[in-house]
Design a protein around this nucleic acid. Structure first.
Length: 438
RNA sequence: GGAGGGGUGGGUGAGUGGUUUAAACCACCAGACUGUAAAUCUGGCGCUCGAAAGGGCUUCGCAGGUUCGAAUCCUGCCCCCUCCA
């Protein structure tokens, strides 16, 4: 139940062995230092849990959710999340992505991105137990002297230990000097907010450790580093990331979310159950057995997974709709209950089509009409179902086009108000003549 | 400052004058199959004109040049890497 405020009582009593065990094991890659972390939890003190984000990438996907769920659990135990808006680090670019130099963001853009990030963030994490701070609160006061003081504390050799840097250096790829500043700034954040525990994916290990070191250099108790496994993306190979296009966004519409989860390989399913749902371990074990025995259809399990994940971000009704939509269009190969509408009007020899297009932008395109028939490829392109006319022709040749549930390969077709065009498995458009509803 | 190496399609990466819209692999798209948008197999994967056959244009960091013809040769510029100082 996302967004629901939590009961206020502190949770020493809640910290039984079972809770603790799941906290330390499930969806965790490594805790540095685990023993200290457990002691902190048991101390009854409300901990300051640090989580940073880069406002140049305001999108949250399931890969982030693994960690956010963990934060939520800890909030339930009475701890507090400190969310840092990385308005300075964003200007450097996290070296782990091997990113190209990024354009500097204006303050306005940063705030807009932060806003959008937070509405997604608070779908999982409790807003009332979160404090949000901008890095500029402390870095705004920095000057060259402070920066020099910071850089003096670490050596090149130490930084080249970092996996990303080491690999790039070995591969003779460029590393900008500013990139060395990234871990330093992130580390200083920990000092500034007196972090008790910092959270991040395993690729953040180095940055988190620098924070730990810097805190102790500056006379603070070093933070614990809580590292979470990187979620494998829908391609089943690489980590989930927006730039690789293998992600399921927290903001995805229910149908899309459900479908994307269904598209993961069967082998990835149990991993997702483990990291992204509350399914008890015994049940996951049971699923593992059932699938390897072949006594259950993996598709049924995956539907359950898709439903459970979608339900974390959408109302139950929408989840049911998404499931029906999937069963209808993908399994049943039928037209969806409602295809997106594309408006058209006939003006003499051309058919003018207005659509939002497959790529989002509003477009007004024309397809020629001859003897009452429209050129099919042009129509598909005009309706935004193909990127170019060439692509539309290719799709036609590959018999990927259906009009009113009948395969269509002809070069031209009669225009009909209310006709449903389908291209491939997922692209649909319903033709609606302007000022007339079917 | 000096010496050398390199920049190829969304990615990795072949290709050193013509058969190159550029191998191969990945990603992606489509079809077949499947009670999954899994897996597997097959095909496709610059734009444009054409019903089609086929034609035109555009592409190998950027800009010029040599040549009947250039990703490939020459010149200048930009960027990256290595070594020396």
């Amino acid at each position: 139940m996302p967004g629901q405020p939590l009961p206020r009582e502190r949770g020493d009593a809640l910290l039984d062995d079972c809770t603790l065990n799941s906290l330390l094991r499930r969806g965790v890659s490594e805790i540095i230092v685990e023993q200290e972390f457990v002691e902190l939890l048991r101390s009854g003190k409300s901990l300051r849990l640090k989580m940073g984000f880069d406002p140049s990438r305001p999108d949250i996907h399931l890969g982030h959710v693994v960690g956010l769920r963990k934060l939520r659990r800890l909030q339930e135990l009475g701890h507090k999340v400190i969310l840092i808006v990385g308005d300075w680090t964003a200007q450097i670019g996290d070296p782990s992505g091997e990113s190209v130099t990024r354009p500097m963001l204006t303050h306005q853009e940063v705030m807009a991105n932060a806003e959008s990030y937070m509405t997604q963030f608070f779908k999982i994490v409790d807003r009332d137990r979160t404090e949000t701070i901008l890095q500029s609160e402390w870095f705004g006061k920095f000057n060259l002297a402070t920066v020099i003081d910071l850089t003096r504390r670490f050596t090149l050799a130490q930084f080249l230990e970092r996996d990303d840097f080491a690999r790039r250096y070995q591969a003779r790829r460029p590393i900008a000097i500013t990139e060395f500043l990234y871990p330093l700034l992130q580390a200083y954040d920990s000092v500034a907010i007196r972090s008790d525990v910092e959270f991040g994916g395993t690729d953040q290990k180095f940055n988190l450790l620098v924070g730990r070191d810097l805190q102790s250099m500056m006379g603070q108790r070093p933070q614990q580093c809580f590292l979470m496994p990187l979620l494998v993306g829908t391609d089943g190979v690489q980590k989930m990331s927006k730039s690789l296009g293998n992600y399921v966004a927290v903001d995805d519409a229910p149908k899309e979310m459900f479908g994307k989860v269904m598209s993961i390989g069967d082998g990835l399913m149990l991993n997702y159950f483990d990291l992204l749902t509350d399914a008890p371990p015994e049940e996951i074990e049971e699923m593992r057995r059932a699938t390897s025995e072949g006594s259950v259809n993996p598709m049924e399990l995956k539907k359950r997974l898709a439903a459970e994940i979608t339900a974390q971000f959408h109302p139950a009704k929408a989840v049911e709709e998404a499931r029906r939509h999937f069963e209808r269009t993908v399994q049943g190969r039928e037209a969806p209950e409602e295809a997106p509408e594309v408006r058209y009007e006939v003006l003499g020899e051309v058919c003018v089509v207005r659509s939002d297009g497959v790529h989002g932008e509003e477009a007004r395109r024309e397809a020629p009409i001859q003897g009452g028939l429209v050129a099919t490829a042009d129509l598909i392109w005009a309706a935004g179902l193909a990127k170019s006319k060439s692509e539309a022709k290719r799709l036609l040749a590959q018999s990927a086009v259906e009009i009113d549930e009948a395969r269509h390969t002809g070069a031209s077709v009669a225009l009909r108000n209310g006709a449903v065009i389908r291209v491939g498995r997922r692209r649909y458009a319903r033709l609606v003549e302007m000022d007339r509803r079917p």
